[in-house]
Design a protein around this nucleic acid. Sequence first.
DNA 1: AGTAGCGATAGTGAATAACTATACAACGCT
DNA 2: AGCGTTGTATAGTTATTCACTATCGCTACT
Lengths: 306, 306
Amino acid sequence: MTLTDLRYLVALARERHFGHAAERCNVSQPTLSVAIKKLEEELAVTLFERSAADVKITDIGARIVSQAEKVLLEAGQIKELATAGRDPLSGPLKLGVIYTIGPYLLPHLIPRVHAAAPSMPLLIQENYTARLAESLKRGDLDVIVIALPFEEPGIVTQAVYDEPFRVLLPAGHPWEQDEAIPASRLADAPLLLLGAGNCFRDQVLEVCPMCRPGEGLQRTLEGSSLETIRHMVATGAGITVLPSAAAAPMSGSNSLLAVRPFEAPEPFRRIALAWRVTYPRSGAIDVIRSAILASPLQGVKPINPR
Amino acid sequence: MTLTDLRYLVALARERHFGHAAERCNVSQPTLSVAIKKLEEELAVTLFERSAADVKITDIGARIVSQAEKVLLEAGQIKELATAGRDPLSGPLKLGVIYTIGPYLLPHLIPRVHAAAPSMPLLIQENYTARLAESLKRGDLDVIVIALPFEEPGIVTQAVYDEPFRVLLPAGHPWEQDEAIPASRLADAPLLLLGAGNCFRDQVLEVCPMCRPGEGLQRTLEGSSLETIRHMVATGAGITVLPSAAAAPMSGSNSLLAVRPFEAPEPFRRIALAWRVTYPRSGAIDVIRSAILASPLQGVKPINPR
DNA sequence: AGTAGCGATAGTGAATAACTATACAACGCT
DNA sequence: AGCGTTGTATAGTTATTCACTATCGCTACT
């Protein structure tokens, strides 16, 4: 049993297809096939049920795979430790960011991280909070940028900044006359919302408990992005609530849209970094944090580390 | 980096002596020496400070060693899991049973399986043959108890017993005078039948090709059970045909009902186990088969395996 | 200076892990 | 029903890796 064997095992469990798993491991299909067979013989258990239709993992196989993942994760930590021992700012950093932050943060973040730590390339993934948390725990990601609250065993978080919410209106909307909008007024508005899975959607619904998507004029845009919603607001399809960094136009000014703050107390979300407690490259995390705070994100309020 | 390398690393950290560490690993000193050097090159860190006097572990080396110990510990768990899982009679077995067998078989089967394989809990589902077949192929079930014929690609069957059909009459019915009932006599009887989807319904209709449900006095009871039909017969709503195990009263004798066999050749159904050809826990299947045959099912005739 | 102890290096042989080619099994399609 | 497609297993070959023996070089102690 070698670490390579375990990598093959995990790949096959994920892909449920010898050919695809082999490709993912950059080896030929027979290589992986033989390795799995060897493992099964060594352990004297059947790990997979092979049939023409598909590859099914056995009950005991599943338990062994999850243990193998643990081994590989711990083994990966050895490399991390070595890298950290050398220089925490050398070697790639796998960064995850939620969808509602990525497009506004990353264009600023990437050059700043590169300037501060030129030998630390960023491998970036955008996804939902739940998916990022999964990848973080599996070791597929090193650090993630998410919105609080976020509680996971074995994961530590550090708040970075607070980001107020804004109301986005089409130009000429009657509310444009007002300096600030009370949250309660959203109840009857034709509110455009992101699909389920986006944490920001839930946060908006918390601001406005009367807003029930799909019951009034509110509409849910499954699989959509804040940018799409911006465009829909511009065409008069409704109004929306955005985090302040997303409310500022991406490039140039957009005379079709108007942004208004909420009346105090302004609703906001708290954005944080999260990583495994065991993650050794704390210096790398500090660089990310500094780079985020140095990024010009409209309206956000930095939080000092404890 | 292999698990062997890590074993060498840990041994050296414990012994602080290449020769002794090598001996403990049952390899030569050069082998271990080269392996450590290779590891250091791969990780690009100095793990040990070698001096003539002794071998000192570096700061980063100590952290890596403790991580390596964790990896080896987790890897050892894989073997433990394999040993624990080698027994086909350990771990839950997902068993499916058709509706017209479950209530009569399971009360006998469950304690017998538990006695024969105490660490193999049964997860039981009752359903129609078609649904069971689906689940079996998907892997949601491991073994199913069904009536033959049953042909599915990738599925093997093994006949367990034959079960004759019986006629169930209300007490005092004129046929009660007869020793046995000819099948042809059912054509004009007010026959109560299970709903479509139940294989037993189709088998009864095969016995009596003249019986067309819903056309004569025959009545189909959608979504019903054999027990419901028993009660209806008892109240004089009609007569029915039951598999012999279901014809025997569930508990106590029921003086409102009479059971009569068919005239030879007695119609019967053949009950079988079915599982995926690839299913590895054949020992578990043997236990199920034995437990079924050890169950006191009225009137059934065991079939020896080929 | 000589010698004992210890780790590193060189060179060789065996084990193994990778590849390509191909066999074999099961389905689906015409 | 036959044939092509898809997917895994096997055979045979090659390259790499791992472990061995022999030996060198360094340091410290006598």
